Amino acid sequence: MHKHIRTALSSAALIIGLSAGGSAAAQQAQPQTSLPKSTVPAPDYSDQQLKRFVSASQKVAMISQEYTPKLEAAASDTQKKQVFQEADDKMVKAVHDEGMTVDQFNGINQALQQDPKLLERVQEMVQQP
């Protein structure tokens, strides 16, 4: 599950950055669109799937913000593993609560990094009231 939390955190940071900074964040996210394009076309995600992803990403980011100080304050490796596992479990639950699997969540996250048009669609969703 440790793989899941890292992927979730990167996408959550992207989404929260977009929602917090508006157009400035959209401009900052632009360099990501210059990544080499994959030869495999990204799946065509529905607006409903993307809205679930955005909501799950925002929840994951809040959990991350909550647990980062706890992780930094943990005195031993055992404590760090416990805090990390608790955060990971909550993040996975947040994704599931949005009606998604972690694999679906990670798939959209990966597609966002490879597809500028998809990223633009998500940015628009985040900026809508």
Rank of each mutant, 00 (worst) to 15 (best):
T78H: 13
A56H: 05
A56Q: 02
S57N: 06
H4K: 04
L14R: 06
T33Y: 05
V83Q: 07
V126M: 06
K70Y: 00
H96V: 03
T101E: 07
L14N: 03
Q30E: 12
L118V: 11
E72N: 14
H2T: 14
M62R: 10
H96L: 04
T39A: 13
R6G: 07
E120Y: 06
Q28D: 12
V60K: 05
A20D: 13
D77F: 08
Q123I: 09
M100Y: 07
A26E: 05
S46C: 02
A13T: 04
K117G: 11
P116L: 05
K90P: 03
F84P: 01
A94L: 03
S34W: 12
H2Y: 02
Q82T: 15
Q27T: 12
P41S: 11
A25I: 09
L71E: 06
V122F: 02
Q32E: 15
D97C: 04
Q48M: 12
V122E: 00
A12M: 05
G99Y: 03
T101W: 08
P31D: 06
Q82A: 15
V92L: 09
A74R: 04
K90T: 10
H4R: 01
T78A: 14
K37G: 12
L119F: 05
Q32A: 15
S34G: 09
T78E: 13
R52L: 08
A13D: 11
I108Y: 00
L35V: 10
V95S: 08
S64V: 01
M62C: 09
A29H: 09
Q104F: 00
P129W: 07
L71H: 08
I5D: 01
G21L: 07
D89R: 13
A111R: 02
Q114C: 01
D47P: 07
Y45W: 11
T68S: 15
V54H: 03
D88H: 06
H2D: 11
Q127T: 03
N106A: 15
Q123T: 04
A111T: 00
A24M: 11
D44K: 13
T101V: 10
P69M: 11
Q30T: 10
T101N: 04
S34K: 13
P69R: 12
P41V: 09
I16A: 14
S11V: 07
V102G: 05
I15V: 15
Q28K: 14
